[in-house]
């Protein structure tokens, strides 16, 4: 797998995230974090601890752009911890994980499950940490639901376009 391509995509996705998706305003409940598609689709060839570090760094960079130091870092590290276990559940043939994780390698059903679960976990962590109080928990959950739906649709949509 070509890592320069992965990094190139990360830069493009971050630009779109910061300049487009961070500016979406739908009653304050729609904040899709599409940048995690780079973490989700990254080939699973690296040691787990390196995966965790990459997640932390990607989260930290996002935090600098959002003035929310630590929040995205915590969420990204968490999904990178769960990622190998999720992949292990879905794929019997380890060889396939050397390629990019996508609808092509996992199949549509498994990829949809994998993406949905990790996106929801990531978004819920971010919004709960950002609200930082029990009084806003209802709002944080609505935010999680709406934003996750949009993020999942965008990530899977990207897969369909790329591996049509």
């Amino acid at each position: 797998m070509d890592w320069t391509k992965q990094i190139g995509r990360y830069i493009v996705v971050m630009f779109l995230q910061v300049l487009l998706f961070n500016r979406l305003q739908l009653a304050g409940v729609c904040h899709p974090y599409v940048y995690i598609l780079c973490l989700l689709m990254m080939p699973a060839t690296l040691p787990h601890s390196v995966d965790l570090l990459l997640g932390a760094v990607a989260g930290l960079i996002m935090d600098v752009f959002c003035n929310s130091l630590g929040i995205h870092m915590a969420a990204c590290t968490l999904i990178m911890l769960l990622r190998p276990f999720m992949l292990g559940q879905m794929v019997n043939d380890i060889e396939r994980l050397n390629a990019e994780i996508s609808t092509h390698t996992l199949g549509i059903d498994a990829m949809a499950k994998y993406t949905s679960l990790l996106v929801v976990i990531h978004h819920m962590t971010v919004f709960l940490l950002a609200s930082w109080s029990w009084t806003h928990i209802g709002f944080a959950l609505v935010e999680t639901a709406v934003s996750s739906l949009v993020s999942i649709a965008l990530i899977l949509g990207y897969n369909f376009v790329k591996y049509r």
Partner: peptide, 20 residues
Amino acid sequence: NFLVFLFLEVVAFLLIAYYN
């Protein structure tokens, strides 16, 4: 791996506590 995870999460939460 889990220790790496714990370490990173502790860093993240320290950042949240200090910068939030």
